[in-house]
């Protein structure tokens, strides 16, 4: 097997190197790749779209359908993790912790799982008291990470970043919350239902912008057609912003969904 794979790998590598021989030099500004399409983008994007970040301009406007489908891929991944791992079967054993005294009750009878009162806390076998230092630091950092993530989403036009990056950072802030406290705490704050809806709604926002353009008489995702409503000025940039927000929503939700499902094997009890 090893030998065989080595042969396959060498063959592929040989083919690729063979193809490399004819490539233009690295960094040469006069390749066809730089002279044909990208030349147009670089020289005209700012005029067409009024967005200085060319990557965003191409991503969210010229090739916007690509990005929409990419968001659909992300949604698909979230849905996939949910479908594959989510485990709805009720737990057999329950552990409860008496908060003031720290005594743990292990309830084996699934019927007697209800313990009234405020001082009991439902917990899991792998429960661990949250580490004070990590918890406190994360508690303080998370809002900043979030505002930063939102900043990244909003400033996709001017600086690197955009919906996806912002979404991932926002998502990882939630993940950080889950790591520093525990998974249940996160789920108490943002329910699974909310995440699921958010993940779909993000793509739906994206698509809604496209469909509305269609209704207004343009092609799908033709932001120009919003001019009668929002005015000519920066209309494409606005459209891109809306689209980025959609992407950000979706990505955030999906990252969290993937994390919570992988880390708890779909039981949603106790994470890392």
């Amino acid at each position: 097997m090893k030998l065989l794979s080595l042969i396959v790998v060498c063959l592929t590598g040989g083919l690729l190197l063979y193809g490399t021989a004819d490539l233009p030099d690295w960094g040469d500004p006069n390749t066809p790749a730089s002279l044909h399409l990208s030349k147009y983008y670089i020289e005209n994007a700012i005029r067409d779209t009024e967005v200085p970040n060319l990557v965003t301009a191409v991503l969210a406007d010229y090739r916007s359908i690509d990005t929409m489908l990419e968001t659909a891929v992300v949604f698909c991944a979230g849905l996939a993790c949910f479908m594959l791992l989510r485990d709805f079967t009720p737990k057999k054993d329950h552990y409860y912790r008496h908060v003031p005294s720290g005594v743990i009750l292990h309830v084996k009878n699934p019927d007697r799982q209800i313990i009234a009162g405020n001082e009991f806390e439902d917990m899991d076998k792998e429960w661990l008291p949250p580490d004070t230092i990590i918890k406190t630091v994360c508690r303080m950092l998370i809002p900043f990470i979030q505002i930063y993530a939102l900043y990244v989403v909003a400033h996709g036009d001017f600086s690197p970043g955009g919906g996806f990056q912002g979404g991932v950072i926002l998502g990882s802030s939630f993940i950080l919350l889950a790591i520093s406290y525990n998974l249940k705490y996160l789920l108490k704050r943002v329910s699974e239902k909310f995440l699921g809806i958010l993940s779909a709604a993000g793509v739906l926002v994206y698509m809604g912008i496209g469909l509305a353009a269609m209704v207004l008489g343009g092609n799908f995702l033709d932001y120009e057609k919003y001019a009668p409503i929002f005015g000519e000025h920066h209309i494409r940039a606005l459209g891109m912003l809306g689209v980025e927000i959609g992407v950000g929503m979706s990505v955030t939700a999906v990252m969290v969904i993937i994390y919570i499902n992988i880390v708890s094997e779909g039981k949603h009890d106790e994470g890392l």
Binding site: L54, L59, E70, V73, F164
Partner: peptide, 22 residues
């Protein structure tokens, strides 16, 4: 055009990274 990097491959790769994460 020669003053700026070619944005198109970056765009494509953003998409590809997203796909690979998914």
């Amino acid at each position: 055009a020669a003053d700026y990097m070619n944005p198109l491959p970056h765009v494509l790769m953003l998409t590809a990274i997203v796909v690979s994460v998914a």
